[in-house]
Simulated assay, not measured.
Amino acid sequence: MTPPFCVLLGSDYAGKSSALTELARVAPEVRIISADEELLGPGHSLIGRLRRGLVGDVMPALHRDYSADFMLTMLQTAVLHLRDSITRSPAGAPVLVDSYYYKMLAKCRLTGQDGHPLFDWWRSFPQPEQVIFLEVSAETAWRRCGAGRDLNPLEHYGPRADYASFARFQGDLNAAMREEVRSLPVSFISEGDRVSTVAQEIREALGAHELV
């Protein structure tokens, strides 16, 4: 039986990783599940290595050295890690999942992979009690990514990143993610500069659904 869980969602550079790291510090009772290397448990270093290979090797050479199906296969490893980690969570522990499959599926749709059969399988996975959605402006996100310096090919439209291609992609990503979770309860957290404040708001949202 899958325990109740919540998903933390947001477009790129919304501050999810920073908020989750802070939440892990101030609320150790919350089980945080993520594919981010900094938040992986000691037994899941493989997920971090696969993610580095995806971002560093596969995405820059997509459609040249690697097919879209190959990229999706690598994304699948992260999705299954999240799903399996949810099912392994001990009963009674509040569970917060980073993005789940929603963000990856939305990005794939924006890059022309709308009809892949994997997506129907992902959508059959257990659904959360609620989604907590971090909001961020395109201007703030652009500043946080070093004005494009830190972007990967799945964070903007076109072969080269500029503010216009980034802002348009992020706006479409936001809309696609909202569409994916439209049937679920969603709590929105406004953009904030203080990580501690955002983490506290996430904790309060969890408490409102008796998940913490």
Score class of each variant (00 low, 15 high):
D69V: 10
Q127H: 03
S190C: 12
L154S: 06
L9V: 04
S190F: 09
I202H: 07
L46G: 08
T2E: 02
Y66D: 01
M71G: 09
H209Y: 08
R31K: 12
D162E: 03
L96T: 13
G10A: 05
I132E: 05
Y13H: 13
A93I: 14
A164N: 03
G48Q: 02
R109N: 13
V198C: 02
D98I: 10
E155A: 05
C6D: 00
R31V: 01
G146F: 05
L62M: 05
A14H: 01
Q130L: 11
P185K: 06
A175S: 09
Y13T: 06
V181P: 09
D172K: 04
S124W: 06
R168W: 02
H44T: 08
N174D: 15
I86M: 06
R194N: 13
V186I: 11
D57H: 07
I132M: 02
D150F: 05
G192C: 07
L110C: 03
L40E: 01
T140Q: 13
A147N: 07
G146K: 09
L9M: 08
L105Q: 14
T87N: 00
H44S: 14
R49C: 12
L80D: 08
S34W: 04
S67T: 15
F119S: 08
I189C: 02
A68Q: 13
S85H: 06
T140P: 10
Y163T: 14
Q127S: 11
K103M: 01
Q170A: 06
R88K: 09
L211Q: 11
S18T: 10
R64E: 14
S17Q: 02
S196H: 11
Y157F: 15
D172I: 06
E191T: 10
S187V: 08
L173N: 13
M1V: 00
I189G: 04
L173D: 10
H81K: 01
S67P: 03
Y13M: 06
R88N: 02
G10I: 07
C6R: 00
F5Q: 04
V97W: 01
G112V: 03
K16I: 06
Q127L: 07
H116R: 14
N174K: 15
M1H: 00
P60M: 03
L134M: 06
R143Q: 13
E29R: 09
E38Y: 07
W122A: 10
I86F: 03
R25Q: 13
D84C: 00
E180W: 05
I47A: 06
V55S: 09
L40H: 00
D114T: 15
V181I: 14
A61I: 03
R52F: 07
L23I: 12
L184C: 03
T197V: 13
F119D: 06
M59E: 12
D98Y: 08
A167M: 05
L173R: 09
L134C: 04
S187M: 07
A161Y: 04
L72R: 14
E37L: 12
I33Q: 04
R31Y: 03
S187W: 02
F169M: 04
